[in-house]
C-alpha cells in the first residue's frame, strides 16, 4: 500500500542525498502543449521515466514545457547535461527512450538521428 506514511520514509532517504543530486542537475524536458500531448508526449515521458528508474539513476529531473512552435516535430524532448548545450530531439517515440537515456543521459553521446536543434 502506497500511503502518506511511505512518503514520510521517502523523505529521509531523499533529503540525505539532496546535495549530491543537486550537483548532478540533469534535466529532461518534454513538450506538453496540445500538439505534444496529441502526438504522444505523455507516453514518451512515461517511457523516459521508466528507463531512468530501471537504470537506478538519481538526480534526473523531469520537466514539461508548452508549445514551442515546432508542432510538426512533436514529440519534442530536450536533454540538458550540466555544462553541455541543450539538445532538442524531435519525433520522439516511446521506443526511443532506451537510446536517449543510455546514450545521452548516461554516456553523454548525442543521439544524432533524432536531433532537431542545439542551443546553449
Amino acid at each position: 500500500m502506497k500511503s502518506l506514511e511511505e512518503l514520510k520514509k521517502l523523505r529521509e532517504k531523499l533529503q540525505s542525498d539532496t546535495k549530491l543530486r543537486a550537483a548532478d542537475g540533469i534535466k529532461v524536458i518534454v513538450g506538453m502543449g496540445t500538439c505534444g500531448i496529441a502526438a504522444g508526449a505523455r507516453e514518451v515521458m512515461a517511457a523516459l521515466m521508466e528507463e531512468v528508474k530501471k537504470r537506478g539513476l538519481a538526480g534526473v529531473v523531469f520537466q514539461q514545457t508548452g508549445c514551442i512552435g515546432m508542432c510538426e516535430k512533436e514529440v519534442l524532448v530536450d536533454i540538458i547535461l550540466p555544462g553541455a548545450p541543450r539538445i532538442t530531439y524531435g519525433n520522439v517515440r516511446p521506443s526511443d527512450a532506451g537510446r536517449l537515456v543510455a546514450e545521452h543521459v548516461i554516456n553523454g553521446q548525442i543521439v544524432k538521428d533524432l536531433v532537431v536543434a542545439k542551443s546553449v
Partner: peptide, 28 residues
C-alpha cells in the same frame, strides 16, 4: 501541498523515487 509539507522544499517531485510513489498512490 501535503506532499510538499512531508517532503520539504528541496525535493523535486520530478525525481524518480517520488514519481514511483505517486504512481502507486494514484493507482491504488
Amino acid at each position: 501541498k501535503q506532499m510538499r509539507e512531508i517532503l520539504g522544499e528541496e525535493v523535486d517531485f520530478g525525481e524518480s523515487a517520488v514519481m514511483e510513489w505517486l504512481d502507486g498512490f494514484l493507482r491504488e
